Simulated scan of single mutants.
Amino acid sequence: MARFGIVSGLLLCIDTAIALFGSLNKAPLLFIPMMLGIPILFFGVVALNPHRRRQALATAAIVGALGGVIGCGQLFHFFSIWRAQGVVNLHSTQIVSLMVAICIVFSVSYLWSLAPSHRQRGRRSAPSP
C-alpha cells in the first residue's frame, strides 16, 4: 500500500504538470493536485518504514479524501457555471476530474486494505477448542 501511495502522489504531480503545459492561464486551481500529491507522496515514502506504516497511510488517506471532497466541490461549481452560462473550461474540468478519480481510488483502496487485516486478526484471537 505504501508503493501505491507513492504512485498516487506522483500521478497527482503529473496531473499538475499536464495542467500547466496544457493551459495558457495559470490559475491556482491547476496547482491543487500537486498540493495534494506531495503530502501523499511523502507519507507513502514514510510508510515504507514498517513502524510508521499505519499512521502514515492513514494520514495519506485523509489527505486523499480531502482532495476528493475539494475536487467534487469544484466539479459541482463547474457544473453550476455550465448550467448558468453554457460554457466552462473543459481543460480545468478534466484536470479536476482526474484528481478526484486518483484521490478517491487511493482512499478507497486504503479502506479496502484495512478490511482483511481486521478479519484475520479476529480469527487469530479466537480461543482454540
Rank of each mutant, 00 (worst) to 15 (best):
M1Y: 08
M1C: 04
M1A: 09
A2I: 03
A2E: 10
F4R: 15
F4M: 09
F4A: 08
F4I: 13
G5F: 10
G5H: 05
I6W: 04
V7W: 04
L10G: 08
L10T: 09
L12C: 04
L12W: 07
I14F: 13
D15M: 04
D15N: 15
D15C: 14
T16W: 05
A17H: 01
A19G: 13
A19L: 05
L20E: 06
F21T: 09
F21Y: 09
F21K: 07
L24A: 12
K26S: 01
P28T: 14
F31L: 13
F31D: 01
P33I: 02
M34K: 12
M34E: 00
L36D: 00
G37A: 06
I38A: 07
P39M: 02
P39Q: 01
I40C: 03
V46P: 05
V46L: 08
A47N: 04
A47Q: 05
P50F: 03
R52C: 03
R52A: 11
R53F: 06
Q55I: 14
Q55E: 08
L57Y: 10
T59S: 11
T59D: 03
A60C: 05
A61K: 11
A61E: 03
I62N: 09
A65V: 11
A65D: 00
A65E: 01
A65F: 09
G67W: 10
G67F: 06
G67E: 03
G68C: 06
V69A: 14
V69G: 09
I70G: 05
G71S: 14
G73L: 12
G73A: 12
L75W: 10
F76C: 06
H77C: 02
S80N: 14
S80I: 11
W82H: 14
R83K: 15
R83P: 00
R83N: 01
A84E: 11
A84T: 12
G86L: 09
V87D: 02
V88K: 15
V88D: 00
N89Y: 09
L90A: 09
L90N: 07
L90H: 13
H91A: 12
H91L: 15
H91N: 09
H91Q: 11
S92F: 13
T93L: 12
T93H: 13
Q94V: 13
V96T: 15
V96G: 03
V100S: 03
V100N: 01
A101C: 14
A101I: 13
I102A: 06
I102V: 12
I102Q: 13
I104E: 06
V105K: 08
V105P: 08
V105G: 03
F106I: 04
F106P: 04
S107C: 03
V108A: 05
V108F: 08
S109L: 04
L111E: 00
W112I: 07
W112N: 02
W112R: 14
L114Q: 10
L114D: 00
A115G: 01
A115E: 00
A115K: 15
P116E: 06
P116I: 15
S117P: 01
R119D: 00
R121K: 09
R124D: 00
S125A: 03
S125T: 11
S125L: 12
A126E: 15
A126I: 11
P129S: 10
